[in-house]
Design a protein around this nucleic acid. Sequence first.
DNA 1: CGGATATTTAAGTCTTGACTTATATAAGCC
DNA 2: GGCTTATATAAGTCAAGACTTAAATATCCG
Lengths: 120, 120
Amino acid sequence: MHVFEVLADPVRRRILELLGPGEMASGEVVEAIGAEFGITQAAVSQHLKVLRESGFARVRADAQRRLYSVDAAGLRTVDAWIGQFRSFWEPKLDALATEIARGKRDRRNAPLTKRTGKRA
Amino acid sequence: MHVFEVLADPVRRRILELLGPGEMASGEVVEAIGAEFGITQAAVSQHLKVLRESGFARVRADAQRRLYSVDAAGLRTVDAWIGQFRSFWEPKLDALATEIARGKRDRRNAPLTKRTGKRA
DNA sequence: CGGATATTTAAGTCTTGACTTATATAAGCC
DNA sequence: GGCTTATATAAGTCAAGACTTAAATATCCG
């Protein structure tokens, strides 16, 4: 399932928000989500499965319990896609700040022409 | 339609990528998307409507043509949601760089304790 | 072992939304 | 005005996926 399809569901987004502060047992998630959305334990479990398989959540076993936590991989993928448009709403960053913020990752394929135009 | 549902569709994501470099007439989008996805003019038009109504695209009229361009609003909303998790994959930025990158917007509610821990 | 607890999986239903074709709207041109 | 071009809308079909209930799996505890 594509990363954006994963986040298209409000229940899954909410689960990630719940996991943000730290890991939570499946049962705790079921309780919180159940209260907010009124869906069953099975439904929540299915959502957790999607989050797992798409790289948004990790699990580890603790006896019968399954402790879930945020996996950055999925979120990163989303951020990368959004990032290609970042100049649309963050044009105020000066070049240096952008360099720092982006970890210089753009440097390799920097378009030599069409820079700020200040000099060329 | 929720922002993430909008981006859940591959055709809509591709349209936004096409609009990235600059505005395009509906017909041009139809041509490009039609070639890539094999869908009709009507289908593309419906996608453009979704993008418009959800704040991802703007239109302006030029005679019979409709010129579409990226609207940052929708993308910004997505970025804001993702942003709450940014610390998961960008913990390496030092405080100063983060300040610059984020435009100091966090400064208001900065958690006094739990900073880098370097000193406290 | 047998029951309670915690969680996943299987199977089926039902809604949403991504398409299609056909038609409507509107501007340009001769 | 009537034809062409450019785009949007209407109405209907079909598949995906978000649920449900029921059952399977696995660990703990007496």
